[in-house]
């Protein structure tokens, strides 16, 4: 189990670096590709967390479907690189306030994580992996305790489908 920490750091570094580059450069097509790398790293972390099913779902749905949709739109619109000129700036007052609020928020997050005692315990020690990795168990809970939310998502998907068709149609 000595390998767990280095593996975590590798995946975490890849995820952070790729995500930073997604927003750090101007070509949309590269952003999409880098986001795939980031999601693949997250899938690796899910496997480390004994959730192989979520990891595979992450790849199939996120990388295999949602991001293909993004890539499609980027190609369809032949999306240009973002303009690099100076953007309209906010007034200095609100900008300073924004910086202060962001710093406070970051500090708050760090403090919350540090303060919590359970955050310092190893994440995989308490419960055996069997408890979370079984697809049978996930299915059971999903179709009993979460049956209502599950049905609601199907409604959500229908609404999204109709909405997307209506919005993207040329002549309504």
């Amino acid at each position: 189990m000595g390998l767990e920490l280095p593996v975590f750091y590798v995946f975490a570094a890849v995820a952070v670096a790729a995500s930073a580059l997604v927003i750090g450069q101007r070509s949309p097509i590269y952003s999409v590709m880098l986001l795939i790398v980031s999601f693949a790293a997250l899938a690796g972390l899910y496997i480390l967390l004994d959730a192989p099913f979520v990891a595979v779902i992450q790849i199939i749905i996120y990388a295999g479907a949602i991001l293909v949709l993004f890539l499609f739109v980027v190609m369809l619109l032949n999306a240009p690189k973002e303009a690099s000129g100076p953007r309209p700036r906010l007034a200095p007052g609100p900008r300073r306030a924004g910086v202060v609020l962001a710093a406070v928020f970051a500090g708050e997050l760090v403090w919350a994580v540090w303060r919590t005692a359970m955050a310092h315990e190893p994440v995989t020690a308490g419960v055996p992996a069997r408890a979370v990795e079984s697809v049978h168990r996930i299915g059971q809970v999903l179709y009993t305790d979460y049956a209502f939310p599950f049905e609601v998502t199907s409604l959500l998907i229908i609404v999204a489908m109709v909405g997307a068709v209506v919005l993207a149609k040329r002549h309504v």
Binding site: V56, I59, L71
Partner: peptide
């Protein structure tokens, strides 16, 4: 299934 869905890229 996941890996074949990657080949589209």
């Amino acid at each position: 299934f996941a890996i074949t869905s990657m080949s589209v890229y």
